[in-house]
C-alpha cells in the first residue's frame, strides 16, 4: 500500500465518520413555540428544509404552525402532519397556517409528500 492509498483510506474512514456524526448524532437546534392568546405559534420557513425543524410544544394546548414556502420546487409543496391527520398545500410565498392540538406527549414527525424534508414536533 503506497502513501496515497493510506491517505485515501484514512481520509475516507474519517469522512464516513463525519457524515454519520453530522447527519445522525450531532445535537440539533430546538425551537420552543411562543404562546400567544391560548395558541402556541411557530413560523416555519420551507426552503430546502423546514426552519426550524425541531419544535417543542406543550401538550393539550392548540398549536399553530405557519408554513411559508420560499421555493418553487414541487417537492415541498405539501406538508403532512400525519399523526394529527393534517396536510396542507403550500403555494409559493404564501403563509399557510396548520392547526392541531397535541394531546399526548411524544415526538411527531412532519414532512413533505416524498418524505425528503423532515421536521419534528416534540410534545411535552
Amino acid at each position: 500500500m503506497d502513501i496515497a492509498q493510506v491517505a485515501v483510506t484514512v481520509g475516507g474512514v474519517a469522512l464516513s465518520a463525519f457524515i454519520a456524526w453530522y447527519f445522525w448524532f450531532a445535537p440539533r437546534e430546538v425551537t420552543r413555540a411562543q404562546a400567544a392568546g391560548g395558541m402556541q405559534e411557530v413560523d416555519v420557513v420551507v426552503k430546502g428544509g423546514y426552519s426550524p425543524d425541531v419544535i417543542v410544544v406543550e401538550a393539550g394546548k392548540p398549536v399553530r404552525l405557519n408554513f411559508t414556502r420560499q421555493e418553487s420546487a414541487a417537492c415541498s409543496e405539501t406538508v403532512i402532519l400525519s399523526d394529527f391527520g393534517k396536510s396542507a398545500f403550500l403555494p409559493e410565498g404564501q403563509t399557510v397556517p396548520v392547526e392541531f392540538t397535541p394531546e399526548k406527549p411524544g415526538e411527531y414527525d412532519f414532512h413533505c409528500q416524498m418524505n425528503m424534508l423532515r421536521g419534528k414536533v416534540i410534545v411535552e
Binding site: Y22, F23, A26, R28, K47, G48, G49, Y50, S51, D53, E71, A73, M116, L117, R118
Partner: peptide, 16 residues
C-alpha cells in the same frame, strides 16, 4: 446545489 446546500445546513441530506 442550492437545495443540497440548504438541506445540508439543516443537517439533512436529500436527492439534491
Amino acid at each position: 446545489f442550492v437545495g443540497g446546500w440548504r438541506a445540508l445546513r439543516h443537517r439533512s441530506a436529500d436527492m439534491n
